[in-house]
Structure formats: structure tokens, C-alpha cells
């Protein structure tokens, strides 16, 4: 933990990262597509297109990705994207899932980083492969089976992070809806701590609850929600990583807001 303050909260302030840019000990990972990365990235960042991780997200595959990026068990890593933090959240979560202890989500997107006038480069750093172990951190993961088992428990809150109309159309019974757009604030991928706490307080969600987040298919939007909850120190959060797509394919029960044609209010 050479550089990170408050390592329980896996989020790093852009200003702090900027100060640490020249320390070669940190591995910064850009999860945009290859072409975007080639056109310019945060200085010293390496590239991991998210699609590569999603193609196979078994622990062994994640382990190999980490090793190929030069991330050992001890290497501090920082992840960013340009998709409001949803893609980078998913990668941070994957690394935490295989037991990496020092990985952080950058609190701004690449565009916001540029707007701040911080350093970018087109140079691709040399990567020395490293060795990474696999120590599955099962506490942060929810499966469909697990979710079904605990969803009626009083202390469990299930949060659907898709957009409102998708949620109204169909959702896991008992889930509440916090669209991913609710999580950001101007210029940052996450709300202020105070803002996040107010949101939960208004919704009557206890910070002691076990919270399970899910979204459409691959756990990106809900990954962002996972870290929004972590940002205020909520201890027990799980990501239902395979999300609603899997839930539906397993033909699990689904709820719907009936008797209203809400889709026709959309101008999309």
C-alpha cells in the first residue's frame, strides 16, 4: 500500500494520481478500446479493452490479464475509462474478486482528466509481466442462486441500476431502482459522500444492509453502483455480476409495472 490513502475505499482522487504519475510502481490501466487508447491516454497508462475481460472472466483469465499487464499481488493499480466509470468499475471489481488488495477506481473519466488539463501521452509503456495469485474474494460476488436465496431477507436490499424505463418494464421482484446516472456529480464519476448518503437516507436504505447491485448484462453499471456504495464505506455490498440477462435466461420470476404505457413518454 505504498501510495493510497484510506485503502478500504477503493477510489483515488485524480489530483493524487497526478502527483504519483511518475512513480513507476503504480500500474494505470485504460479500459477503452485500443484505437481510443492509441490516440492518447493518461501518461504511463497501459491498455486493457474491457471486451477482452468480458470475453472470459473466469478467475484464471483475470489472473492472466493481471499478469500480462504487469500487475503482481503487490502492484498498486488504478483503472479508468471514458464511460462514466462503469467499465473501469467492472475491471476494479474483477481484480478485487481474484484477491488483489490495492486496486483503485479513478474518480474522473478520461475526458474529465483532459478537461482538468492533466498529463496525457501517446507513448505506450513497456510492460514486464508479473506473477499474481488467485485468492477468490467471494464476499463481493452474488450469484443468481444466492440472490434468490436471500432476497426476501429483511436486511437485504437489491438495487437495479438500469434506466428507469427498463426497470419499469421488468426487474427482479423486490428490487429498487437507482439509475446509474443518479450516481455521478458534475465533473466526477461519483456523487459526493454527503450526496450519496442523502440519497440512501431518503430512500430509507440502511448503511448496515446487505446490498446487492445488478444491471442489464455484464455488471458495469451496477459495478459503478457497487463503488458508489463502497465510497461511503458501506461494508456489505455484492455485485450480481451476470445481472438481469442471466436472471431472465434462468427463467427466474420477474416483476413489471402494469397498466401504464410509460415507453410512449420517451422521445428516444
Amino acid at each position: 500500500m505504498c501510495c493510497m490513502i484510506d485503502s478500504d475505499i477503493p477510489i483515488i482522487n485524480s489530483k493524487i494520481l497526478r502527483e504519483k504519475l511518475q512513480e513507476n510502481s503504480i500500474r494505470i490501466v485504460d479500459v477503452r478500446r485500443d484505437q481510443e487508447y492509441q490516440q492518447g491516454h493518461i501518461t504511463n497508462a497501459v491498455n486493457l479493452p474491457l471486451a477482452k475481460l468480458l470475453a472470459d472472466d473466469s478467475p484464471e483469465a483475470i489472473q492472466k490479464i493481471a499478469q500480462d499487464l504487469g500487475i503482481s499481488d503487490e502492484t498498486p493499480a488504478v483503472i479508468y475509462d471514458d464511460t462514466f466509470g462503469a467499465l473501469s468499475s467492472r475491471v476494479v471489481w474483477a481484480l478485487q474478486y481474484i484477491g488483489h488488495k490495492d486496486v483503485k477506481l479513478l474518480d474522473v473519466t478520461f475526458s474529465q482528466w483532459k478537461e482538468l488539463g492533466y498529463e496525457i501521452s501517446t507513448e505506450v509503456p513497456e510492460i514486464e509481466t508479473a506473477t499474481h495469485s488467485v485468492k477468490i474474494n467471494s464476499e463481493i460476488m452474488a450469484t443468481a442462486e444466492y440472490l434468490e436465496k436471500v432476497k426476501e431477507n429483511e436486511n437485504v436490499v437489491i438495487i437495479d441500476n438500469r434506466e428507469r424505463l427498463n426497470y419499469l418494464e421488468q426487474h427482479i421482484p423486490g428490487a429498487i431502482n437507482i439509475p446509474y446516472r443518479t450516481l455521478a456529480t458534475d465533473g466526477k464519476i461519483l456523487r459526493t459522500k454527503e450526496g450519496m448518503k442523502t440519497l440512501l437516507k431518503n430512500r430509507g436504505i440502511s448503511e448496515d444492509a446487505e446490498i446487492i447491485t445488478y444491471c442489464g448484462s455484464v455488471g458495469t453499471l451496477s459495478g459503478l453502483a457497487y463503488y458508489a456504495l463502497k465510497s461511503i464505506g458501506i461494508p456489505n455490498v455484492k455485485l450480481y455480476v451476470h445481472s438481469f440477462k442471466e436472471w431472465k435466461s434462468l427463467e427466474k420470476p420477474i416483476d413489471k409495472q402494469e397498466n401504464a404505457n410509460y415507453w410512449d413518454l420517451s422521445a428516444e
Partner: peptide, 29 residues
């Protein structure tokens, strides 16, 4: 509209702008 409603807003016949399908607990925000 993106944070608390359906990603669209509605212009009414009385010069109001409406946000629909807002969770009651989010209205104060």
C-alpha cells in the same frame, strides 16, 4: 431527467416542464 426520471422531459400545454416516473423519495433531490 436522466438521474431521476425517464431520460426525457415533457413540455406541457401550460408552459410547465414535467418529469415523469420519479420515485417519490427522490423528489426532494
Amino acid at each position: 431527467s436522466e438521474m431521476y426520471s425517464i431520460g426525457s422531459a415533457h413540455f406541457s400545454t401550460r408552459e410547465n416542464i414535467q418529469l415523469h416516473w420519479v420515485i417519490l423519495e427522490d423528489v426532494s433531490e
